[in-house]
Simulated scan of single mutants.
Amino acid sequence: MSDELAGKVAVITGGASGLGEGLVRRFVAEGARVVFGDVDAEGGKALAEELGSAARFLVSDVTDLSQVAALVDTAVGDFGGLHVMVNNAGVSGTMHRRFLDDDLADFDSVLRVNLRAVMAGTRDAARHMADHGGGSIINLTSIGGIQAGGGVQTYRASKAAVIQFTKSVAIELAHYEIRVNAIAPGNIRTAIVRKSAAAEDRERLEEFEAKIRAQMRNDRPLKREGTVDDVAEAALYFATDKSRYVTGTILPIDGGTVAGKVIPRKS
């Protein structure tokens, strides 16, 4: 590691596992002091203990906006400032076999986590950054918000909204030297696919996940699997001065999936 974030303070939501854990680990390894939150108290506390004094963990449910604000307040109070805000916490919603079968029962819960918490985290971080020379805000969306497709329609809608919000608020916050960008992961192996399985699929979960992964692989020009580290590398770029002239950008980390359909090679 090269200490690219030495002297920086960051907040990361949803940091106890998956992509969020990867971001926390990478930022600390690069010299940042990190405050991270998650509903997973056990996992979060274990990660913070492992990483030592550079990390602070708060049990945090982003559907409670006061708890989002508390992450920012803790960064400023414990570490003296805030330079990078990563709005990572997200949920998948339930994958139904047909949209006609979707009762929209999870609409409010998905939008509260995937969109409202992103807006609140951006706002709370920007309130501090606006008075302290600017900073970088990184929102996690998904290729599901870029590329149309079947299944998890509420999730897709929420992630598309994050993209439009990111671009719009980037224009407004540029006045304060605050850069706002988004990362759109795709085909990254985390638990989110498993969590999207409807109740009737749970007994065949391994078969369900294998089919989804096979479809993702077939749709992806680059055949190697994407990793959490790939996403962390993109976040590191947005967090550093290397991206000082970049704002309002949506960066897919997806092996080329949203670029277009795979063209079979001629034999």
Rank of each mutant, 00 (worst) to 15 (best):
D3W: 07
V11Y: 03
I12F: 01
A16C: 11
G18W: 00
G18Y: 00
F27G: 04
V35E: 08
V39S: 03
A46Y: 02
L47P: 06
A54Y: 00
F57R: 09
F57N: 11
D61T: 02
S66G: 13
V68T: 08
A69G: 12
A70L: 06
L71N: 04
T74P: 10
A75T: 01
F79H: 01
G81M: 02
H83K: 01
H83T: 01
V86I: 14
G90W: 03
R97H: 09
R97D: 14
R97W: 06
D101Y: 05
F107E: 13
F107H: 13
F107C: 12
V110K: 00
V113P: 14
A117D: 10
M119P: 09
T122S: 09
R123E: 15
H132L: 01
G134L: 00
G135E: 01
I137P: 02
G144N: 15
G144I: 09
Q147L: 14
G151N: 05
G151Y: 01
V152D: 14
K159M: 07
A161N: 13
V162T: 06
V162C: 10
F165S: 12
T166Y: 05
V169W: 03
I171D: 14
L173N: 09
L173I: 07
H175S: 15
R179V: 03
V180T: 04
I183A: 14
A184N: 09
V193L: 11
K195Q: 15
A199P: 11
E203A: 14
E203N: 05
E203S: 07
E207W: 06
A214Q: 14
M216S: 11
L222D: 06
E225W: 14
G226V: 12
F238V: 06
F238N: 07
A239S: 12
K242F: 07
K242M: 07
Y245R: 09
V246R: 00
T247K: 00
T249H: 08
I250W: 04
G255R: 00
I263N: 08
